[in-house]
Design a protein around this nucleic acid. Sequence first.
DNA 1: TCAATTAGTTACTACGATGTAACCATTGTT
DNA 2: AACAATGGTTACATCGTAGTAACTAATTGA
Lengths: 124, 124
Amino acid sequence: MNRTTIEDALFPDCPIRNILARISDKWSLLVIYTLDKSEKAPVRFKELQRRIPDISQKMLTVTLRTLEEDGYVTRTIYPEVPPRVEYSLTGRTKSLLPHINSLIGWALENREPIMRDRKRAAGN
Amino acid sequence: MNRTTIEDALFPDCPIRNILARISDKWSLLVIYTLDKSEKAPVRFKELQRRIPDISQKMLTVTLRTLEEDGYVTRTIYPEVPPRVEYSLTGRTKSLLPHINSLIGWALENREPIMRDRKRAAGN
DNA sequence: TCAATTAGTTACTACGATGTAACCATTGTT
DNA sequence: AACAATGGTTACATCGTAGTAACTAATTGA
């Protein structure tokens, strides 16, 4: 059968964990978010860099390539000079975003008590 | 006001990103899941270790301590010999779990096409 | 007397993720 | 002639996360 269930997600090399690990790195969600904010319009590499000021060129490239491999973004090259490369989100990512947003919503609601707990714990 | 909005989640040191980063490390969700599976009953340290066979003692300790700091688990020490320490989830974690589950559900639905895309990309 | 049990701590090591800086090609502009 | 702009790549350095092994205390059981 080779089915993967939520239960299987407990196992260390489970594909589900693998998928989640890959988007929970330092930059992926931020890149996805930045692309999402521009709605329909694709965004150029340099523009992404400007909108995420603290990402290095290398990490932007690496992150975009990984996202492309897993089918989260499409990469379109226009053979012009200077080069133009445009990135946009796939339908897959658009179906993912509501779940991420609900998680962010939760974090938003719980941020103050969490931070209080953390601060209190640091006092010990 | 000091409000944090979803938009602010773009910023690098945003508390939201911080909260999410902290549970998206290698072991936290697995520990949370394992505690959740035991429903009402608190779980002892050694029992957790048995249920997550590949976690090292050190990482289980570190993960539990971090989860405790942020108020995801409670830690109850019974001064017996040999020592007994029991862990259980807080209400906060129980409100978080549905969001995590919906994310896992999404990963489950999308796992096959993602893996296909990834394999295809590796072929280039 | 020796081992087992529990819940850790500590020092050390290893590895993967990330950052930095330099470099590339091509064209238009000053 | 030199520089800016774009979208990268590469080598190297560093940083943080995680893993390994040894050690601890107190008691029970063989």
